[in-house]
Amino acid sequence: MIFSLVKRNVLLYFRDKISVFFSMLSVMIIIGLYVLFLGRMVESSGEVAGENARFLTDSWIMAGVIATATITTTLGGLGQMVDDLSRKINRDFETAPIERWKIVISYAISSVVIGVIMSIFTFILAEVYIIAYGGEFVGFGALLRVLGVVILSTVASSSFLFFFVSMIKTMNAYSTISTIVGTLIGFLMGIYVPVGALPNAIQSFIKVFPFSHSASLIRQIMINEVIDLEYLPREVSETLGIQFYFNDVVVSQLTSIMFLVGTALIFFGLSVIITTKRKREV
């Protein structure tokens, strides 16, 4: 039952070309902006990476793009839940001998499946871009680690977003949320403006925002392929949001991972509470 519901939701997402396009829109905008402002960024990283300046900047921006995809495409995948509710398709599920929790969990699982597929697709595009401009393909170990972070980040964002989306009843409200997320995400991930260039209050907020840790982890893995992280000056690392520091103590990869795991668990719990308490409506 869960399997066929997940299959349904995933099929419906990929057959609706417009929803696929819109869930990738933020990613495309970021890449577009990057291409436009490329020259200046490469220049400024030249002093750190030397001849690898281009490879470094490309890896940095693409790491942010992949982290963004784990959120926006997962949100796109959750749209089916709102669509079913607003078109009252859920009545067909609720009058069948299938437990309610199975229906609900299948939306969450399908958003993870969609998010992972689309993020991997983004990762492939990113690598193609990096190689096309003289960079190198990530090593096998780094590839697996990126995939691991992508999956973790997608699960956490599915859990986090599910909590908010499950309170929505109309497609209008859902579109509004998608627009807000799509607009803010580039800033929260420290892509449009590097974290170090933002005011302190916002920097602190970004540091406790779970998904900027996805970006940070993917940056660490991908940039390590260009230049050994140990040789990266702290100032550069901190400014570009590659590593976060709390009172001069660097946030370890394990801490970032645990932070994402914690987010996934807490919001999963909250989502369970909210969906079981919601009254049945027709």
Binding site: L11, L12, R15, R87, K88, I89, R91, D92
Partner: peptide, 13 residues
């Protein structure tokens, strides 16, 4: 078995 007044099937399938 129920046939609802408004359709409950998926257009894209």
């Amino acid at each position: 078995g129920i046939v609802f007044q408004d359709s409950v099937l998926d257009n894209l399938l």
